[in-house]
Simulated scan of single mutants.
Amino acid sequence: MVEAFAVASGKGGTGKTTSTLALGMALADEYDVTVVDVDTGMANLLFHAGLDDAPTTLHDLLVAGADVDVADATYDRYGMRVVPCGTSLAAFEQSDPALLRDVVADLAADADVLLLDSPATLASKSAVLPVVLADRVVVVSQPTIPSLSDALKVQEYAESYGTETAGVLFNKVHGDLGTVAEQADRYFGGGTLGVVPDSDAARQARDAGEPLLAHAPDSEAAAAFRDAAARIDPRPGRAGDVADRFRSAVVPERP
């Protein structure tokens, strides 16, 4: 049974999309993986995956009545399936995020692991929906107090919607984590998944339009992402029919 992960952060700039693709490629060595860019307002994944010329994207699937099949917006890349968002403002304005439930339900039928590259903030119901759909959330943070504070808010949101935390992934790390990692292990469900050093290779991969693990597979950062993926340990998702679970998901009022 598929397990869905929301890859989320409390703020932009933490390297969330880089992390999503890196985890996806690492997990694809063992599982059928589908990565979905559900940040419909700020599409980034298509550039990181070399799909900036993709003719059909998630936005097309989110237009009511559109004659588009999920397969049309799904691309085989780097050993996994990738569903990017487009960059057209018109497409964004026409899309209905509520239809994301159906899209995710269809994608779940052909995957062991779903990775949902989520919006950096949780300020609206459409932004929160990926966290509601997920079984667990991977929190991407930098090892600073402000970033940790924002990441803890993401975990609090997730828990209020019944979504567990797989752990925190520290990215763009300079030097040793020290007491910050100790605090993360104390306060985050799942503890620390990994520590990824700040890397020129990651920036070069982004500029080349390739995931880090494809562009620089032997880099220290790539090795750190593979270690983090191994700690995620995918497991069967929540009980019940998978398609029904995703299609019936709603954003409840938080307690």
Rank of each mutant, 00 (worst) to 15 (best):
M1S: 13
A4W: 08
G12K: 11
L21F: 12
L23G: 10
L23I: 15
L23V: 14
D29C: 08
V35S: 03
V38W: 06
M42Q: 12
A43W: 11
L45T: 12
L46K: 00
L51V: 05
D52S: 15
D53C: 05
D53T: 14
P55T: 05
T56E: 05
T56N: 00
T57A: 03
L58F: 00
D60H: 14
A64Q: 13
A66Y: 09
D67V: 07
D69S: 10
A71R: 10
A71D: 07
D72T: 02
D72P: 03
D72K: 04
A73I: 08
D76Q: 08
G79F: 03
V82M: 02
V83H: 00
C85W: 13
S95Y: 04
D96R: 12
P97R: 02
P97I: 02
L99T: 09
R101I: 00
D102W: 03
A105P: 11
A105F: 11
L107E: 07
L107M: 13
L115V: 12
D117E: 11
S118V: 15
S118Q: 15
P119H: 07
S124W: 04
K125A: 12
S126V: 07
S126P: 00
R136E: 15
V138K: 05
S141H: 03
Q142E: 15
L152K: 09
Q155S: 14
G162F: 05
G162A: 01
T165M: 15
V180M: 14
V180N: 08
A184S: 07
D185F: 08
F188C: 05
S199A: 07
Q204T: 01
Q204E: 09
A205G: 06
R206A: 14
A208Q: 04
G209M: 02
P211Q: 05
P211D: 01
H215Q: 07
A216N: 00
D218R: 10
E220C: 01
A221L: 03
A223P: 02
F225V: 09
A228D: 15
A230V: 08
A230Y: 11
I232N: 08
I232G: 12
I232R: 13
R235H: 14
R235T: 10
A239I: 13
D241Y: 05
A249F: 14
V251E: 01
E253L: 03
R254E: 00
